[in-house]
C-alpha cells in the first residue's frame, strides 16, 4: 500500500472485423497494486477508445474479463499487475482461446452459455450444494437454510485452457461438464445423463487438469468431471444388475 508507480508496456491483440490481426503496444504508468483490467481500462480511457474488451463487476463475480495474460488464462480484474510483471516489464494481452473473436479482446461465448442453459445449471444454490463435494459434510446439517451464488462464474477460461476443446468444437468442455456435475448433486436425471454420457461429453476429457489450474473461482472442473465419471459408471453398473 504505497504510491509506487510502475511503467509497463502492454502488448495487446487487435482484430477488427475481417482485417488483419496485429499486436499494438501501449506504455502506461500505473500503481502495481492495481489490476491488469485497470491497466487495460486505462489504455482505453487515455490511449485508444477503439479498444474493445469485456468487463463488468471488477471483483470476480461476473466472469466477463477472462483473457490471456502472458499466455496464461487470467481473470484480469483480480490479477494484480505486481503478480504478472515488474517495473518496466511487459504484459501480453490476448483474447481467450477456443472461442471466436468478435473484435480485439471480445470473444463469442454464446455456445458455452447455450450448453450451460441446456444442462439446467442454476447460479443460486443452497450453501452446501454450492460448495465442492469434499467441503459439503461440515455444512450440510447447519447451513443448508442459506443460499448463495455458486462458484462457477461462467468465464470460459477452463474451455480456453483445455487441450481437447482446442481441437474439437463439439466437445462440451470443462465448464459445461462441471455444471452438469453441479446440477446433478441431486439424483442423476436422464436428461443430464444423455448429455454427459456421450461422444462429446465426459469420456472426451484426457485428464490434463488444465481447467482446474486456471479456474479463478474454485470450481475444480477436472475434479468434477472425474466425480461425474464415477457417478455414471456406478449408474451403468447398477443398471446392468437391475436388468438381470
Amino acid at each position: 500500500m504505497n504510491d509506487t508507480i510502475w511503467t509497463i508496456e502492454l502488448k495487446i491483440f487487435r482484430q477488427r472485423a475481417d482485417a488483419q490481426r496485429y499486436f499494438q503496444t501501449f506504455q502506461i504508468e500505473i500503481n502495481p497494486d492495481e489490476y491488469v483490467l485497470d491497466a487495460i481500462e486505462k489504455v482505453w480511457a487515455f490511449h485508444d477508445r477503439s479498444l474493445t474488451f469485456r468487463h463488468a463487476c471488477h471483483h470476480s463475480t461476473c466472469g466477463a474479463c477472462g483473457m490471456l495474460v502472458n499466455g496464461i488464462e487470467k481473470l484480469t480484474c483480480i490479477t494484480s499487475i505486481r503478480s504478472v510483471t515488474q517495473n518496466n516489464g511487459k504484459l501480453l494481452i490476448e483474447p481467450l482461446r477456443n472461442f471466436p473473436v468478435l473484435s480485439d479482446l471480445v470473444v463469442d461465448t454464446s455456445s458455452m452459455f447455450k450448453a450451460l442453459e441446456e444442462i439446467g445449471f442454476n447460479q443460486v444454490a443452497s450453501l452446501p450444494s454450492a460448495c465442492l463435494p469434499y467441503e459439503r459434510k461440515t455444512l450440510e446439517h447447519e447451513r443448508s437454510e442459506y443460499q448463495r451464488l455458486v462458484d462457477c462464474i461462467e468465464c470460459g477460461m477452463c474451455i480456453s485452457a483445455c487441450p481437447v476443446s482446442l481441437t474439437d468444437s463439439n466437445y462440451l468442455g470443462p465448464a459445461v461438464l462441471a455444471a452438469a456435475h453441479d446440477a446433478s448433486s441431486q439424483p442423476l436425471s436422464n436428461k443430464i445423463l444423455e448429455i454427459v454420457d456421450s461422444r462429446d461429453g465426459l469420456w472426451r476429457c484426457h485428464n490434463a487438469f488444465e481447467c482446474s489450474a486456471v479456474c479463478p473461482s474454485n470450481v475444480e472442473p477436472g475434479l468434477r468431471i472425474m466425480k461425474m465419471r464415477q457417478t455414471v459408471i456406478a449408474h451403468r453398473i447398477k443398471k446392468l444388475f437391475s436388468r438381470g
Binding site: D18, G71, P100, L166
Partner: peptide
C-alpha cells in the same frame, strides 16, 4: 471471424508445453 475457433489443425499445440 473464424480465427481462434477449435479446430483439429491446432493439434500441434497439444505438444507446446509453454
Amino acid at each position: 471471424m473464424n480465427i481462434n475457433k477449435p479446430s483439429p489443425s491446432h493439434l500441434w499445440r497439444w505438444f507446446d508445453p509453454r
